[in-house]
Amino acid sequence: MLTAADDAALVRATARRQARSRYVAHAVLTLGVLVFAFPIWLTLVGSSHDANTIGRGDVPLWFGAQAITNYISAWTTGGSAVRTTGQVPAWLMLWNSLNMAVMIALGKIAISLLSAYAVVFFSFPGRMVAFWLIFITLMLPVEVRIIPTFEVMVNLGLINTMSGLVVPLIASATATLLFRQFFLTIPDEYVEAAKIDGAGPLRFFKDVVMPLSVTNIAALFVILFIYGWNQYLWPLLIVSDKDLETVVVGMSKMIGTSDSQNEWNIIMATAVLAMLPPVAVVVFMQRWFVKGLTETEK
Protein backbone atom coordinates (compact mmCIF):
# COMPACT_ATOMS: atom_id res chain seq x y z
CA MET A 1 0.00 0.00 0.00
CA LEU A 2 1.19 3.49 -0.79
CA THR A 3 0.88 5.97 2.02
CA ALA A 4 0.20 9.68 1.62
CA ALA A 5 3.89 10.32 2.30
CA ASP A 6 4.85 8.01 -0.58
CA ASP A 7 2.46 9.86 -2.85
CA ALA A 8 3.98 13.18 -1.86
CA ALA A 9 7.45 11.79 -2.63
CA LEU A 10 6.24 10.65 -6.05
CA VAL A 11 4.78 14.06 -6.78
CA ARG A 12 8.10 15.71 -5.86
CA ALA A 13 10.03 13.26 -8.02
CA THR A 14 7.77 14.00 -10.99
CA ALA A 15 8.24 17.76 -10.49
CA ARG A 16 12.02 17.29 -10.34
CA ARG A 17 12.01 15.19 -13.46
CA GLN A 18 9.95 17.75 -15.37
CA ALA A 19 12.19 20.59 -14.19
CA ARG A 20 15.29 18.67 -15.23
CA SER A 21 14.00 17.92 -18.72
CA ARG A 22 13.07 21.58 -19.10
CA TYR A 23 16.60 22.69 -18.21
CA VAL A 24 18.20 20.14 -20.51
CA ALA A 25 15.99 21.17 -23.41
CA HIS A 26 16.83 24.81 -22.90
CA ALA A 27 20.54 24.14 -22.57
CA VAL A 28 20.60 22.21 -25.85
CA LEU A 29 18.56 24.91 -27.54
CA THR A 30 20.79 27.71 -26.31
CA LEU A 31 23.88 25.85 -27.47
CA GLY A 32 22.34 25.38 -30.90
CA VAL A 33 21.42 29.04 -31.17
CA LEU A 34 24.94 30.08 -30.18
CA VAL A 35 26.58 27.82 -32.76
CA PHE A 36 24.34 29.11 -35.54
CA ALA A 37 24.25 32.73 -34.51
CA PHE A 38 27.91 33.32 -33.72
CA PRO A 39 29.18 33.73 -37.31
CA ILE A 40 26.33 36.14 -38.01
CA TRP A 41 27.18 38.02 -34.85
CA LEU A 42 30.82 38.30 -35.99
CA THR A 43 29.70 39.57 -39.38
CA LEU A 44 27.44 42.18 -37.81
CA VAL A 45 30.15 43.32 -35.44
CA GLY A 46 32.81 43.27 -38.17
CA SER A 47 30.72 45.52 -40.37
CA SER A 48 30.84 48.23 -37.71
CA HIS A 49 34.62 48.62 -37.41
CA ASP A 50 37.17 50.23 -39.70
CA ALA A 51 39.23 48.15 -42.09
CA ASN A 52 42.39 48.33 -40.04
CA THR A 53 40.92 46.86 -36.87
CA ILE A 54 40.01 43.63 -38.64
CA GLY A 55 43.10 43.79 -40.83
CA ARG A 56 45.31 43.67 -37.74
CA GLY A 57 43.87 40.29 -36.90
CA ASP A 58 41.98 41.38 -33.82
CA VAL A 59 38.50 39.99 -33.98
CA PRO A 60 36.33 42.35 -31.97
CA LEU A 61 33.26 40.93 -30.23
CA TRP A 62 31.46 44.20 -29.76
CA PHE A 63 30.32 46.90 -32.16
CA GLY A 64 32.62 49.67 -33.32
CA ALA A 65 31.76 53.19 -34.37
CA GLN A 66 32.02 52.88 -38.17
CA ALA A 67 28.76 51.13 -38.92
CA ILE A 68 26.99 53.94 -40.73
CA THR A 69 30.04 54.95 -42.79
CA ASN A 70 30.67 51.32 -43.78
CA TYR A 71 27.11 50.64 -44.88
CA ILE A 72 26.91 53.87 -46.86
CA SER A 73 30.19 53.07 -48.52
CA ALA A 74 29.15 49.49 -49.32
CA TRP A 75 25.72 50.55 -50.59
CA THR A 76 26.86 53.38 -52.83
CA THR A 77 30.37 52.50 -54.03
CA GLY A 78 31.24 48.96 -53.03
CA GLY A 79 34.31 50.20 -51.17
CA SER A 80 37.54 51.66 -52.46
CA ALA A 81 39.61 48.50 -53.01
CA VAL A 82 40.62 47.65 -56.56
CA ARG A 83 38.84 44.52 -57.72
CA THR A 84 38.88 42.34 -60.78
CA THR A 85 35.71 43.91 -62.09
CA GLY A 86 36.16 47.29 -60.54
CA GLN A 87 33.91 48.67 -57.87
CA VAL A 88 30.30 47.59 -57.99
CA PRO A 89 28.01 49.21 -55.44
CA ALA A 90 26.00 46.86 -53.29
CA TRP A 91 22.67 48.32 -54.38
CA LEU A 92 23.33 47.25 -57.98
CA MET A 93 24.42 43.75 -56.99
CA LEU A 94 21.40 43.38 -54.72
CA TRP A 95 19.12 44.60 -57.48
CA ASN A 96 20.60 42.09 -59.91
CA SER A 97 20.31 39.27 -57.39
CA LEU A 98 16.74 40.21 -56.58
CA ASN A 99 15.82 40.29 -60.26
CA MET A 100 17.47 36.96 -60.89
CA ALA A 101 16.00 35.23 -57.82
CA VAL A 102 12.46 36.49 -58.41
CA MET A 103 12.55 35.57 -62.10
CA ILE A 104 13.94 32.12 -61.37
CA ALA A 105 11.36 31.49 -58.65
CA LEU A 106 8.41 32.75 -60.67
CA GLY A 107 9.63 31.09 -63.86
CA LYS A 108 10.09 27.75 -62.15
CA ILE A 109 6.67 27.96 -60.55
CA ALA A 110 4.96 28.93 -63.81
CA ILE A 111 6.63 26.19 -65.85
CA SER A 112 6.20 23.45 -63.28
CA LEU A 113 2.58 24.36 -62.51
CA LEU A 114 1.71 24.06 -66.19
CA SER A 115 3.68 20.91 -66.83
CA ALA A 116 2.33 19.21 -63.72
CA TYR A 117 -1.20 20.27 -64.75
CA ALA A 118 -0.69 18.72 -68.16
CA VAL A 119 0.73 15.50 -66.73
CA VAL A 120 -2.01 15.04 -64.13
CA PHE A 121 -5.23 16.26 -65.73
CA PHE A 122 -4.83 15.36 -69.38
CA SER A 123 -4.36 12.03 -70.99
CA PHE A 124 -2.40 12.31 -74.19
CA PRO A 125 0.01 9.98 -75.95
CA GLY A 126 3.46 10.11 -74.42
CA ARG A 127 2.23 11.53 -71.14
CA MET A 128 4.14 9.10 -68.98
CA VAL A 129 7.20 9.40 -71.22
CA ALA A 130 7.14 13.14 -70.71
CA PHE A 131 6.75 12.68 -66.99
CA TRP A 132 9.66 10.27 -66.74
CA LEU A 133 11.88 12.50 -68.88
CA ILE A 134 11.22 15.32 -66.43
CA PHE A 135 11.80 12.94 -63.56
CA ILE A 136 15.13 11.70 -64.92
CA THR A 137 16.57 15.21 -65.06
CA LEU A 138 16.44 15.15 -61.28
CA MET A 139 19.41 12.83 -61.40
CA LEU A 140 21.56 15.36 -63.28
CA PRO A 141 22.89 18.17 -61.10
CA VAL A 142 23.42 21.57 -62.73
CA GLU A 143 27.19 21.06 -62.67
CA VAL A 144 27.00 18.01 -64.94
CA ARG A 145 25.25 19.85 -67.76
CA ILE A 146 26.92 23.18 -67.24
CA ILE A 147 29.32 22.98 -70.21
CA PRO A 148 26.65 22.09 -72.81
CA THR A 149 24.32 24.66 -71.31
CA PHE A 150 27.04 27.27 -71.55
CA GLU A 151 27.60 26.39 -75.18
CA VAL A 152 23.91 26.72 -75.95
CA MET A 153 23.87 30.13 -74.28
CA VAL A 154 26.89 31.22 -76.29
CA ASN A 155 25.23 30.12 -79.54
CA LEU A 156 22.08 31.96 -78.61
CA GLY A 157 24.11 35.07 -77.82
CA LEU A 158 22.81 35.18 -74.27
CA ILE A 159 26.15 35.56 -72.56
CA ASN A 160 26.19 38.59 -70.29
CA THR A 161 22.44 39.01 -70.31
CA MET A 162 19.82 38.63 -67.61
CA SER A 163 17.99 36.06 -69.78
CA GLY A 164 21.14 33.97 -70.00
CA LEU A 165 21.41 34.17 -66.27
CA VAL A 166 17.84 33.14 -65.55
CA VAL A 167 16.48 30.90 -68.32
CA PRO A 168 18.72 27.83 -67.89
CA LEU A 169 17.90 27.73 -64.19
CA ILE A 170 14.14 27.82 -64.68
CA ALA A 171 13.39 24.24 -65.74
CA SER A 172 12.68 22.39 -62.55
CA ALA A 173 11.92 18.74 -62.06
CA THR A 174 11.56 19.11 -58.31
CA ALA A 175 8.81 21.70 -58.46
CA THR A 176 7.02 19.76 -61.20
CA LEU A 177 7.06 16.67 -59.02
CA LEU A 178 5.80 18.54 -55.99
CA PHE A 179 2.92 20.07 -57.92
CA ARG A 180 2.14 16.72 -59.51
CA GLN A 181 1.86 15.09 -56.09
CA PHE A 182 -0.38 17.90 -54.93
CA PHE A 183 -2.58 17.80 -58.02
CA LEU A 184 -3.07 14.07 -57.58
CA THR A 185 -4.78 14.81 -54.25
CA ILE A 186 -7.38 17.05 -55.92
CA PRO A 187 -10.51 14.86 -56.09
CA ASP A 188 -11.74 13.83 -59.54
CA GLU A 189 -15.16 15.16 -58.58
CA TYR A 190 -13.89 18.75 -58.82
CA VAL A 191 -12.81 18.09 -62.38
CA GLU A 192 -16.16 16.50 -63.18
CA ALA A 193 -18.15 19.21 -61.44
CA ALA A 194 -16.21 21.78 -63.45
CA LYS A 195 -16.91 19.89 -66.66
CA ILE A 196 -20.62 19.95 -65.91
CA ASP A 197 -20.38 23.61 -64.93
CA GLY A 198 -18.85 24.18 -68.34
CA ALA A 199 -15.37 25.24 -67.27
CA GLY A 200 -12.73 24.44 -69.88
CA PRO A 201 -9.25 23.26 -68.91
CA LEU A 202 -7.71 26.73 -68.61
CA ARG A 203 -10.71 28.07 -66.73
CA PHE A 204 -10.52 25.13 -64.33
CA PHE A 205 -6.80 25.79 -63.89
CA LYS A 206 -7.37 29.44 -63.12
CA ASP A 207 -10.52 29.11 -61.00
CA VAL A 208 -9.91 25.92 -59.09
CA VAL A 209 -6.40 24.52 -59.35
CA MET A 210 -4.52 27.79 -58.82
CA PRO A 211 -6.48 28.93 -55.76
CA LEU A 212 -6.10 25.48 -54.22
CA SER A 213 -2.35 25.56 -54.87
CA VAL A 214 -1.72 28.94 -53.26
CA THR A 215 -0.10 27.55 -50.14
CA ASN A 216 2.09 25.23 -52.18
CA ILE A 217 3.09 28.09 -54.43
CA ALA A 218 3.99 30.23 -51.42
CA ALA A 219 6.08 27.46 -49.90
CA LEU A 220 7.85 26.78 -53.17
CA PHE A 221 8.45 30.47 -53.77
CA VAL A 222 10.39 30.70 -50.51
CA ILE A 223 12.52 27.69 -51.35
CA LEU A 224 13.10 28.70 -54.96
CA PHE A 225 13.83 32.33 -54.15
CA ILE A 226 16.60 31.27 -51.81
CA TYR A 227 17.84 28.75 -54.36
CA GLY A 228 18.00 31.52 -56.96
CA TRP A 229 19.52 34.05 -54.59
CA ASN A 230 22.32 31.64 -53.65
CA GLN A 231 23.29 30.76 -57.23
CA TYR A 232 27.06 31.01 -57.57
CA LEU A 233 28.55 28.82 -60.27
CA TRP A 234 26.23 29.73 -63.14
CA PRO A 235 26.35 33.53 -62.66
CA LEU A 236 30.12 33.29 -62.29
CA LEU A 237 30.36 31.62 -65.69
CA ILE A 238 27.78 33.49 -67.69
CA VAL A 239 28.27 37.06 -66.47
CA SER A 240 31.44 39.09 -66.72
CA ASP A 241 29.75 42.44 -67.12
CA LYS A 242 29.88 44.29 -63.82
CA ASP A 243 26.46 45.78 -64.41
CA LEU A 244 25.02 42.27 -64.07
CA GLU A 245 27.09 41.23 -61.05
CA THR A 246 25.04 39.34 -58.46
CA VAL A 247 25.75 39.82 -54.81
CA VAL A 248 26.87 36.28 -54.01
CA VAL A 249 29.44 36.28 -56.81
CA GLY A 250 30.32 39.93 -56.30
CA MET A 251 31.12 39.41 -52.67
CA SER A 252 33.54 36.62 -53.37
CA LYS A 253 35.27 38.85 -55.89
CA MET A 254 35.68 41.51 -53.21
CA ILE A 255 37.97 39.17 -51.36
CA GLY A 256 41.15 39.77 -53.26
CA THR A 257 43.98 37.32 -53.66
CA SER A 258 46.56 40.02 -54.24
CA ASP A 259 48.72 41.70 -51.62
CA SER A 260 46.34 44.57 -51.17
CA GLN A 261 44.43 44.64 -47.94
CA ASN A 262 40.85 43.34 -48.03
CA GLU A 263 38.25 45.78 -46.85
CA TRP A 264 36.68 43.31 -44.48
CA ASN A 265 34.40 45.90 -42.97
CA ILE A 266 32.85 46.63 -46.37
CA ILE A 267 32.69 42.94 -47.28
CA MET A 268 30.89 42.18 -44.05
CA ALA A 269 28.51 45.08 -44.49
CA THR A 270 27.71 43.74 -47.98
CA ALA A 271 27.24 40.26 -46.52
CA VAL A 272 24.74 41.61 -44.02
CA LEU A 273 22.89 43.41 -46.80
CA ALA A 274 22.91 40.22 -48.88
CA MET A 275 21.25 38.32 -46.06
CA LEU A 276 18.34 40.69 -45.71
CA PRO A 277 16.20 39.86 -48.79
CA PRO A 278 16.08 36.09 -48.16
CA VAL A 279 15.30 36.76 -44.51
CA ALA A 280 12.55 39.14 -45.54
CA VAL A 281 11.08 36.60 -47.95
CA VAL A 282 11.12 33.85 -45.34
CA VAL A 283 9.59 36.03 -42.63
CA PHE A 284 6.92 37.48 -44.90
CA MET A 285 5.96 34.34 -46.81
CA GLN A 286 6.20 32.01 -43.84
CA ARG A 287 3.35 33.75 -42.06
CA TRP A 288 1.36 33.34 -45.22
CA PHE A 289 1.93 29.70 -45.90
CA VAL A 290 1.75 28.54 -42.30
CA LYS A 291 -1.66 30.19 -42.19
CA GLY A 292 -2.54 28.37 -45.37
CA LEU A 293 -1.27 25.05 -44.07
CA THR A 294 -3.26 25.22 -40.85
CA GLU A 295 -6.46 26.09 -42.69
CA THR A 296 -6.03 23.40 -45.30
CA GLU A 297 -9.22 21.87 -46.64
CA LYS A 298 -9.77 19.72 -49.61
Binding site: E192, V208, L212
Partner: peptide, 20 residues
Protein backbone atom coordinates in the same frame (compact mmCIF):
# COMPACT_ATOMS: atom_id res chain seq x y z
CA UNK B 1 -21.69 16.14 -76.60
CA UNK B 2 -19.62 17.51 -73.73
CA UNK B 3 -21.24 17.43 -70.26
CA UNK B 4 -21.54 21.22 -70.31
CA UNK B 5 -23.54 21.13 -73.54
CA UNK B 6 -26.11 18.62 -72.31
CA UNK B 7 -27.96 21.01 -70.02
CA UNK B 8 -27.75 18.73 -66.99
CA UNK B 9 -26.80 19.25 -63.36
CA UNK B 10 -25.25 16.67 -61.11
CA UNK B 11 -25.06 16.19 -57.36
CA UNK B 12 -22.01 14.21 -56.32
CA UNK B 13 -21.62 11.77 -53.47
CA UNK B 14 -18.99 13.93 -51.75
CA UNK B 15 -20.74 17.10 -53.01
CA UNK B 16 -17.61 18.33 -54.87
CA UNK B 17 -18.05 21.88 -53.61
CA UNK B 18 -15.04 24.00 -54.51
CA UNK B 19 -13.39 24.53 -51.11
CA UNK B 20 -11.98 27.98 -51.80
Amino acid sequence: LEPADRDIAMVFQNYALYPH
